[in-house]
Simulated assay, not measured.
Amino acid sequence: MAQLVKNLLPRRDKRMLEGIKSGSSPFGGQSQRYRHDNDDGLGTSVGRHRGSSGLSPRRSLGRLVPPPSPPEPPSPCPSHTSALPGAINSWDQTFTFECPGGQVVSNVRSAHCSTAEDRVWRFECKSVPGVSSFPEHFWTPWVNDFDGVMDFTCPFNSLVTGFKSEHSNSQEDRRWKVQCSKTAGMVTYNHALTPYQNDWDTAMDYTTAQDYYLRGIHGYQSDHHGDRRYRFDICKLRMDGC
Results as ranks from 00 to 15, higher is better:
Lys164Phe: 13
Val131Phe: 01
Gly162His: 06
Asp173Pro: 00
Trp176Thr: 08
Arg109Trp: 03
Trp121Met: 09
Phe152Ile: 02
Asp118Gln: 05
Asn169Phe: 09
Phe95His: 06
Val104Phe: 04
Arg175Ala: 07
Val149Ser: 14
Glu172Leu: 10
Cys113Met: 06
Asp147Ser: 13
Trp91Asp: 07
His137Ala: 13
Ser114Pro: 09
Ser127Asn: 14
Asn169Lys: 12
Trp142Asp: 13
Ser110Cys: 03
Val160Lys: 03
Val149Glu: 15
Pro100Gln: 13
Glu136Gly: 10
Val104Ser: 05
Ser110Glu: 12
Gln171His: 10
Cys154Glu: 03
Val104Ile: 05
Gln93Tyr: 08
Val108Arg: 09
Met150Ser: 13
Asp118Asn: 14
Val143Lys: 10
Arg175Val: 02
Ser106His: 08
Gly130Leu: 08
Trp139Pro: 08
Ser90Glu: 08
Gln171Asn: 12
Arg109His: 03
Ser127Gln: 11
Asn169Thr: 14
Phe138Gln: 14
Ser106Leu: 04
Asp145Cys: 07
Asp151Cys: 11
Gln179Ser: 11
Cys154Gly: 03
Phe152Val: 05
Cys99Ile: 02
Leu159Pro: 06
Ser106Arg: 02
Asn107Gly: 09
Asp92Arg: 14
Pro129Ser: 11
Ala116Ser: 14
His112Pro: 03
Cys125Asn: 01
Glu166Val: 12
Phe156Arg: 15
